[in-house]
């Protein structure tokens, strides 16, 4: 699948909606996943995750959550309706796909919050971080 294609976005939707499998759950304390399950339970916001391209344009993966389910994933040129808009450069996305730790990407501010209330965004931070990690695990071919 080509990165940031429609097919890829649909695969991402399936992956983030499914959440962690048993093997992944076993690597961290159950209370951590329990916290995420609770943060996610009624979640109904949307995230636009931007990829800034070398030509100066940014495209967005738009993920829409409803009652804890990821109900839509599209690739768009504008993040208009998203509650939270974040973006990263192509190298960061590349590193994410290569397995770079999502928490580290956030703490080094390689993925920046460009729009949205920072305090409410952080109230679900581990749900967000694990969802972005799941995006990184969806196989994708980077276009040139």
């Amino acid at each position: 699948m080509i990165f940031f294609s429609t097919d890829w976005a649909e695969a991402v939707r399936g992956a983030v909606d499914a959440g962690p499998d048993d093997a992944l759950r076993a690597t961290k304390l159950e209370t951590y996943w329990g916290w995420i399950d609770q943060a996610r339970a009624d979640y109904g916001e949307s995230w636009a995750l931007g990829r800034c391209k070398p030509d100066g344009h940014t495209d967005y993966l738009l993920l829409r959550w409803e009652r804890g389910h990821c109900v839509a994933a599209t690739v768009t040129a504008t993040p208009s309706e998203a509650t939270y808009v974040l973006s990263a450069d192509a190298q960061t996305w590349h590193d994410l796909l290569a397995g770079e730790d999502t928490g580290r990407i956030v703490m080094y501010r390689r993925l920046r919050l460009e729009r949205g209330e920072v305090l409410s965004f952080f109230r679900i931070i581990y749900f967000f971080v694990e969802s972005v990690a799941a995006i990184g695990r969806v196989p994708a071919t980077l276009d040139a």
Binding site: K28, Y32, D101, G103, R104, V106, M107, Y108, R109, R112, L113, V118, F121, F122, I125, Y126, V129
Partner: peptide
């Protein structure tokens, strides 16, 4: 030393980074 750092480090310290951006 990063692999010793807990997954939940990004909670308070990521929050600080994003508040610094704000």
């Amino acid at each position: 030393s990063f692999h010793h750092v807990s997954e939940t480090f990004v909670g308070p310290f990521g929050l600080l980074a994003y508040l610094a951006d704000e």
